[in-house]
Computed example of a mutant assay.
Amino acid sequence: MSTPCACLFFDIDGVIRDVSRSYRRALADTVEYFTGGAYRPSQREIDDLKAEGCWNNDWEGSRELIYRYFERQGKPRCQVPLDYERLVIFFEERYSGQNWSGYIQDEPLLVDVAYFQALDQAQIRWGFVSGATRDSAEYVLKHRLGLDRLLLVAMEDAPGKPDPTGLRMAYHQATAQETVPAFYVGDTVADMQTVVNARKEQATTPWIALGVIPPHVNPEDRQRYGDRLRAAGANAVFEHTRDITPRVVAAFLRQLADCDSNCGQ
């Protein structure tokens, strides 16, 4: 296997597929159901939760918003009779449904096969590091997007982000050379922090964090959302995943080469 010029890894939710009417809808449904219909979080409230950097798992995020609602009502979370397994089942009934008949079928794709073919032609190795379940990730990547080969690290394979284990696993599957620059494209604070943490654990690799503002963010909130990603460690922030082209990757590689040259003088 030849050495690539770079490795480009993608989160899936909000980067490859628009989950505003699927995962996020299932999350809001779950919170509403387990608060007895008293509280349904808005998209901005979900964004604010994810901006804390530790709620990449939507099952856990649902549970946290439920607990916080009852705490605002003066009821400690230790007194909330919340069955997490039942919560997960409720969430998945709405998101996955029977034979993928749930909200997952309403997810617009944000890239196409031609996008990845262009990366191949530029000798950029690519893959996916996602907190989605493997079944859900493979459904969108194989059956909807039409990718016939996958480098995928999913929920079952590694600890949740911002732990960098999954990103490092994908990198070592992509190349045996630890000096090949690695890009990670994500839409959350946790995604950016994952890259920051990878730098700490694998300092020989140039790690670059690329933020994408997901489609659900309103025009008036997009600057604020991008600033959050930059504050969390994004080297650059893009409006759309498809804006991250081989030419953009090449520009970053030139910057790295210039830095190495200047540092060596």
Score class of each variant (00 low, 15 high):
12 I>H: 08
218 N>K: 11
55 W>I: 02
103 Y>Q: 10
170 A>V: 07
47 D>G: 05
187 D>S: 07
220 E>Y: 00
205 T>A: 02
87 L>T: 05
129 V>E: 07
1 M>I: 09
212 V>Y: 04
62 S>F: 00
152 L>V: 07
124 I>T: 03
131 G>Y: 00
237 V>K: 06
25 R>A: 15
223 Q>I: 11
6 A>L: 07
102 G>Y: 12
190 A>F: 04
177 Q>A: 13
2 S>A: 13
60 E>K: 15
13 D>F: 08
166 G>A: 04
76 P>V: 06
27 L>G: 05
78 C>H: 12
93 E>C: 10
163 D>N: 14
191 D>P: 13
234 A>T: 06
34 F>A: 04
180 V>S: 05
211 G>A: 06
58 D>E: 12
173 Q>M: 12
27 L>W: 04
164 P>E: 02
147 L>H: 04
50 K>M: 13
55 W>L: 10
3 T>D: 10
151 L>M: 10
136 S>Q: 08
225 Y>W: 09
62 S>W: 00
176 A>F: 05
170 A>T: 06
38 A>K: 14
202 Q>H: 10
100 W>M: 09
54 C>Y: 07
56 N>Y: 11
177 Q>D: 15
55 W>Y: 15
250 A>K: 14
198 A>S: 11
187 D>T: 09
162 P>G: 08
230 R>F: 12
241 T>I: 11
172 H>Y: 09
4 P>L: 06
144 R>E: 13
164 P>D: 02
158 A>P: 08
111 V>R: 03
159 P>S: 06
123 Q>W: 09
134 R>C: 07
199 R>P: 10
46 I>Q: 14
251 A>R: 15
72 R>N: 10
40 R>Q: 11
55 W>A: 08
258 D>N: 15
207 W>V: 04
115 Y>C: 03
76 P>C: 07
174 A>T: 06
227 D>W: 07
224 R>K: 12
221 D>A: 13
211 G>E: 04
108 P>M: 12
76 P>T: 08
179 T>V: 08
8 L>N: 02
196 V>S: 11
62 S>D: 01
247 R>T: 14
164 P>Q: 02
204 T>Q: 14
257 A>G: 11
77 R>T: 00
152 L>F: 03
186 G>S: 00
245 T>A: 13
254 R>Q: 15
207 W>Q: 02
26 A>I: 08
60 E>D: 13
113 V>D: 09
201 E>I: 05
135 D>K: 03
168 R>D: 06
101 S>Y: 07
44 R>S: 14
75 K>I: 15
38 A>M: 08
251 A>Q: 15
238 F>S: 08
221 D>W: 03
14 G>N: 09
189 V>K: 05
217 V>P: 06
58 D>K: 12
15 V>S: 05
144 R>C: 07
